[in-house]
Simulated scan of single mutants.
Amino acid sequence: MSRAFVFPGQGAQTIGMGRALAEAYPAAKAVFDEVDDALSEKLSALIWEGSIEDLTLTRNAQPALMATSIAALRALEAEGVGIEAASFVAGHSLGEYSALCAAGSLGLADTARLLRVRGTAMQEAVPVGIGAMAALLGLDFEAATAVAAEAAQGEVCQAANDNDPGQVVVSGHKGAVERALEIAKARGAKRAILLPVSAPFHCSLMQPAAAIMSEALSAVEISAPKVPVVVNVRAEAVSGPDRIRALLVAQVTGSVRWRESVLWMEQAGVTEFWEIGAGKALSGMIRRIAKDSATRAVGSPEDVKGAVEALG
């Protein structure tokens, strides 16, 4: 049986995530301590005792979710299950950074600092109220792309996240995204809803953030991953450090090709996906994409024990 470790993106954050891992496993606690040091602030206190409003701010949510994922991985390692148990790693948007850290391409402190820069840059790339994102449910990627093109009318409107066969997120100028809602409904979408996000991620309006990330990534060492990383913008495995660096920049404005990434892994022989970190959103998507695959969420000490026992 071939398995992939996958890492969640923004939206999975909850107050208290990772705390039980840190209390049960010194190696997990060390992750949160190192991230706190790297950011020169007690992000762990915000994660465990803060307000969900503050945690949901992009600049906080991104390093917080990564820290929780790597803490879960360290707990697995403490039980004897390392990254070599996976044939591939992949992550949804910011989760790609977690995947690269898990695979040894990026150091933990560097990853935390990069995600703080990325989160801040994405937050500030577009003034509040100018952009929006919407989920189109019941349309495939091709249909959603056509909806976005029709809705643009000289503004930006792009298919940003190809999450699963019936869920595509569009991103761009607020007026264009609102037009996309009506066009999608007219074209048979089951639902079309604006998302509670602070900026229009993964579209060309994020170009200022891409420029900032290009500079930030140029100053960081990237190693070849210990296991291949299936990247969002290519939906295939990549292992060259320079290629990884370039694709992380492209990812800021490019589509998250999650559905295609999961299909690529399935075709490469993956039969089991472990979601490492907070929540179970990716597991739900994967079950709709690769219906014969098994999924397992690993976000608590109980999950870790269960995963280890399942390996026998």
Rank of each mutant, 00 (worst) to 15 (best):
A4F: 00
G16Q: 10
E23Q: 14
D36N: 15
D37A: 15
S44Q: 10
A45N: 13
I47L: 12
I47A: 09
W48H: 08
G50D: 01
L57G: 04
L65K: 07
I70P: 00
A75Y: 01
A78C: 08
V81I: 13
A86L: 04
S87L: 12
V89T: 08
S93G: 10
A99M: 05
G107R: 15
G107C: 13
V117H: 08
R118W: 07
G119V: 11
E124V: 04
L136S: 06
L137F: 01
F141P: 00
V147D: 01
A149G: 07
E150V: 10
G154E: 11
E155P: 05
C157R: 09
D162I: 11
N163F: 03
Q167G: 04
V168I: 12
K185E: 04
S198Y: 06
A209Y: 06
A210W: 05
A211K: 14
L217I: 14
S218N: 15
A224D: 12
K226V: 07
P228L: 12
A237M: 12
L247Q: 08
A250C: 06
Q251K: 14
E260K: 14
S261H: 03
V262C: 09
A268N: 13
E275M: 06
G277D: 01
S283K: 10
R288K: 15
K291E: 14
T295H: 06
T295F: 06
V308H: 05
